[in-house]
């Protein structure tokens, strides 16, 4: 592994239980964090549904993704963002979220992307 940490941006844009992409994104985020890279985790589009409070996937025999998301801080993933427009569009607000994500807008995301070494779009 390289000596200097690089900046990874993970764009998570899929709903939590319709596909495996949300879990895949989370696994990649945790791997990058474990290998001591700088991680920015951005939830946008249907990805904002992953952050909803009081989710319980036991009814569909799945693991509840939100529970793992709440442990992000333990892995040193502190830079978690949520796209405000994606929330608005779905009638949601930051009060509906299970973790304190920083609200961000399109220009903010553009700025982060410009300064990133790597982008994962899941």
């Amino acid at each position: 592994m390289a000596t200097k940490a690089q900046t990874f941006i993970f764009l998570s844009r899929s709903a939590p239980y319709g596909s495996h992409r949300s879990q895949l994104c989370l696994d990649a985020v945790l791997a990058a964090a474990v290998f001591e890279q700088t991680v920015h985790y951005i939830f946008l589009d249907d990805g904002v549904y992953q952050l909803l409070k009081e989710q319980d996937a036991s009814a569909i025999n799945r693991k509840t993704l939100g529970k793992t998301l709440q442990s992000l801080e333990l892995y040193g993933v502190n830079q978690v963002y949520v796209d405000g427009e994606s929330l608005n569009y779905r009638g949601l607000g930051t009060q509906d979220l299970l973790l304190p994500a920083t609200e961000i807008n399109a220009p903010g995301i553009r700025l982060l992307l410009r300064n990133a070494d790597h982008v994962f779009n899941l």
Binding site: M1, A28, A31, A32, Q37, H118, N121
Partner: peptide, 18 residues
């Protein structure tokens, strides 16, 4: 191998293409 090999590839390659 584990996902660490993907992160390692991103770090050590000039470009990672998805």
């Amino acid at each position: 191998a584990g996902l660490g090999q993907l992160i390692d590839a991103a770090v050590n390659a000039d470009r990672l293409v998805h």
